[in-house]
Design a protein around this nucleic acid. Structure first.
Length: 466
RNA sequence: GGCGACGUAGCCAAGUGGUUAAGGCAGAGGUCUGCAAAACCUCCAUCGCGGGUUCGAAUCCCGCCGUCGCCUCCA
């Protein structure tokens, strides 16, 4: 009944209670758009899509903001390499990412701001930080004075003293008062760098300030949920907190939620390691539900192990879920079997909610849905149909829908062949009637080789694409 | 070096103090079937190792081993 979420800030599960009853303000860090998105991005986006869907299922109105970082060193570098203007390049990858969100059945965030459209707000915020003594300007750059923020490190639980070698931004080391200070505004160095006028001269925002500015612009000083991959905890989210809370004198977010990383052959998948599977790669071979099932199969905070074997397992799991949607074979609407089915649907829904209420335990929730699959199959075998059967399937569809599964049977992409397959199936049925088993089996085997699976039921033969 | 997470059956993975340790995949046997397929039934783990706390621990504490993440851009 009560939703509890794990808060990175406090390192424990807390009862979820939004600031404004009935409304959830959620900000999730989006991608820097300079190359094809990979399944790690997909995981993050799907995790927060599921969280959003479940919050909506519970009756909340969710305002979901996800940013696009379209001003960044990597974009500038890539643009220099390829000769494509930085904004065109970024815009192209944004469009592509949006299409991939659709392909992955991710609900589009309510607002998707870009850095390039948030410059005024960023400049205003940087100025406020300077005015309050939390930032200082050097040669057209502005840095955040980390030492001025006494609770710096509270999210990642780092102390500056512990940072023996790392924990510092390497940009403009020689200009900073302190190596831990980080850039809020970077002065333009080359004429081909995107730059905007500011009180400190032409330049562009640092990485962290964009999110602080966007949160405030679209959701206000304090939000309910701030999300992202756990690789962003430090320094990105730590710095966001430092900027926003120093500037607004208010907590940035009530709950900090972080998803685990996709692991590929034992290590984190990332652009820098070059061990990437892009979203395009995956979707070229598999249904989007397969990837979602992979994400649902383990807890969102844990690393997601990715290899051929787990993909194959998810593929099979999807087939099993799809099996629950097949039509009934009987029309029994009363009796112990029908009662048992309705009871199973009730139980599944109850347990599903209990699991999801426990910090979005999708793996457990999915387990309860598999129990419902079995109950539906059993009822079908027992001849249950009509209203109770439809009701159980409707519950199943509703709950899988909350998880964002589409459960569409494999589309008949080769629809031109369908009449011919029907014909072959018909001929085979005649052969079976005539007990011409060898020929009938030949037809079945050859169709199987072509990707068509036959099933002989008591009501005749059905076929489907494999 | 600092901070943190994890280690449950052949594989993936829930469970974090107390009935028979969810679920999926794979495997074995069975029902159904002309034979299959699908479905259903049955079987298949004492929880990394060693101590400790407790009436009782996979679940808490300590140590060890192992894997991974962050500390530089990263979902």
């Amino acid at each position: 009944m009560t939703l509890r979420v794990y808060n990175t800030l406090t390192r424990q599960k807390e009862v979820f209670q939004p600031l404004e009853p009935g409304v959830v303000r959620m900000y999730v860090c989006g991608p820097t758009v300079y190359s094809d998105a990979h399944i790690g991005h997909a995981m993050s986006v799907i995790v927060f899509d599921i969280i959003r869907r479940y919050l909506e299922y519970k009756g909340y109105k969710v305002v979901h903001v996800m940013n696009f970082t379209d001003v960044d060193d990597k974009i500038i570098n890539k643009a220099r390499e390829t000769g494509e203007p930085p904004f065109e390049l970024a815009g192209r990858y944004i469009e592509k990412f949006l299409e991939q969100l659709d392909a992955l059945n991710v609900k589009r965030p309510t607002v998707m701001p870009r850095v390039s459209g948030t410059i005024d707000e960023i400049i205003a915020m940087v100025q406020e930080l300077i005015d309050k003594g939390y930032a200082y300007e050097v040669n057209g750059n502005v840095f955040f004075r980390v030492r001025a923020d006494d609770d710096y490190g509270k999210l990642s639980r780092r102390k500056l003293e512990d940072a023996a070698r790392g924990d510092r931004e390497h940009y403009a080391e020689d200009l900073k008062e302190d190596p831990f200070d980080f850039a809020l505004w970077k002065a333009q160095k080359e004429p081909d760098e995107p730059a905007w006028d500011s009180p400190w001269g032409k330049g562009r925002p640092g990485w962290h300030i964009e999110c602080s500015a966007m949160v405030r612009k679209h959701l206000g000083p304090t939000i309910d949920i701030h999300g992202g991959g756990n690789d962003l905890v430090f320094p990105h989210h730590e710095n966001e907190i430092a900027q926003s809370e120093s500037c607004n004198d208010a907590p940035l977010a009530k709950y900090w939620l972080h998803n685990g990383m996709v692991q590929l052959s034992g290590e984190k998948m990332s652009k820098s390691l070059g061990n990437m599977v892009t979203i395009d790669d995956f979707l070229a071979e598999h249904d989007a539900d397969v990837f979602r099932l992979l994400v649902l199969g383990s807890h969102y905070r844990k690393p997601l192990v990715y290899d051929d074997s787990v993909v194959e397992q998810a593929e099979k799991g999807l087939q099993r879920l799809l099996g629950a949607l097949r039509p009934p074979v009987g029309d029994k609407t009363e009796g112990p079997e029908a009662d048992a089915l309705l009871e199973a649907a009730r139980t599944a829904k109850e347990r599903f909610e209990a699991a999801m209420d426990d910090d979005f335990n999708t793996a457990a929730a999915l387990g309860h849905l598999y129990d419902l699959v079995k109950a539906i199959n059993t009822a079908r075998d027992a001849g249950v149909g009509g209203e109770p059967f439809e009701q159980a399937q409707a519950t199943f569809k509703e709950l899988t829908g909350v998880l964002g599964l589409r459960l569409q049977p494999k589309a008949a992409a080769k629809s031109d062949a369908e009449p011919f397959i029907d014909l072959l199936v018909e001929v085979r049925s005649e052969l079976r009637k005539a007990k011409q088993w060898a020929l009938a089996d030949l037809v079945r085997d050859r169709l199987a080789e072509l990707g068509v699976a036959l099933e002989d039921t008591r009501d005749g033969t059905t076929w489907s694409w494999k």
